[in-house]
Design a protein around this nucleic acid. Structure first.
Length: 309
DNA sequence: CCCCAGGCACCTC
DNA sequence: GAGGTGCATGGG
């Protein structure tokens, strides 16, 4: 067992809770087992666990944010892993300075300032977003836990055993009926076939070598991956901070607040909203808007938003 | 009983 | 390429 602290003085604003609970990642979970979206503990001093295969062996990390720093316990030195996975080297102030402003964007940034994009490992990100199609957030989480506990490599940590996210080979060995038994429903064959493709050498990672739109097309070759899931993997794993996943919520957001960006089909609407939210960091802006609007309820403004810059 | 959940594959045309 | 359908599962 190793322990350490990661000072946040020089990283700029950071909010662990909103970062890992804003629907970007299904690969973190809360130690106390409280419901992922339980408002009553929102802002509390909760702990989180994740397993990872970086930098080499599977590892467990427990971390919380306390007194302006991250306090962690792990089977390995967690500091470099946390810096990477939580994008602590992103210049958040610089990103915001380059983002077009309007009243809605300003409110979203202010409300959750410090939230960062996650940088999840690529294969787990791919599989978890395949599972996310037409599914409630809490159940997507449960599916990932089930996959981990059924197929992942066990890691002992403290008094407990945890499980790393399954590798492509481990998941490719799963059978479709087994996956259906884990409540994956019609996503079961998608997960298996994509795991087989990756295990056989088709690398989602090489999307990095392409331009954004070509990378998105490249990822849709995986079974169960359309434009939306591809955008999630690009944004939350592969460092394409311009990606804006057009899910039902963002589509509603566009129709309500940025109707001029609604071009009827995915690729043109995507281009328009990326331009509107700031071509380089549209994914950051999208994540703030998404998180804010999902929690705003009746507080949310109505009608089209005028640009103030 | 209905409807829906951060869509996608597959089939038409 | 655009437009419709079926799809598993659990919760409201």
């Amino acid at each position: 067992m190793e322990r350490g602290t990661l000072e946040l003085e020089n990283t700029g604003p950071f909010d662990l809770q909103s970062t890992v609970e804003s629907g970007q990642s299904y690969l973190w979970w809360r130690v106390d087992g409280n419901d992922y979206q339980d408002e009553t503990v929102y802002g509390g001093e909760s702990w989180y666990l994740t397993t990872t295969r970086e930098p080499e062996a599977p590892a467990v990390i427990r971390v919380r944010q306390h007194n302006g720093k991250l306090e962690w316990e792990s089977t390995v030195d967690a500091t470099p892993i946390l810096k990477k996975r939580l994008r602590l080297t992103d210049d958040l102030d610089g990103i915001r300075a380059k983002t077009p402003t309007d009243p809605l964007i300003e409110t979203a940034f202010e409300q959750y300032w410090g939230m960062r994009i996650v940088r999840d490992p690529t294969f787990p990100s791919l599989i978890s977003f395949i599972c996310s199609a037409q599914m409630h957030v809490t159940r997507i989480h449960e599916m990932q836990q089930a996959l981990r506990e059924t197929y992942g490599t066990p890691i002992s940590f403290g008094d407990s055993t945890y499980y790393a996210y399954p590798t492509p080979a481990q998941l490719a060995d799963a059978t479709e009926p087994e996956l259906r038994d884990l409540s994956l429903g019609y996503r079961a064959p998608y997960v298996k076939r994509t795991a087989e493709m990756v295990a056989d050498g088709t690398s989602p990672e090489t999307a990095r070598d392409r331009s954004y739109e070509e990378a998105r097309d490249y990822l849709t070759q995986f079974v169960g991956v359309g434009d939306k899931v591809a955008d999630c993997v690009l944004l939350f794993a592969l460092d394409f901070l311009e990606a804006v996943p057009l899910d039902t919520w963002i589509r509603k957001t566009i129709a309500e607040y940025y109707p001029g960006c609604d071009r009827g089909n995915y690729s043109e609407t995507s281009a328009a909203i990326r331009d509107r939210l700031g071509p380089t960091f549209a994914g950051y802006t999208q994540t703030y808007l998404f998180h804010y609007l999902r929690h705003a309820g009746e507080e949310a403004p109505k009608g089209p938003i005028q640009s103030t810059k």
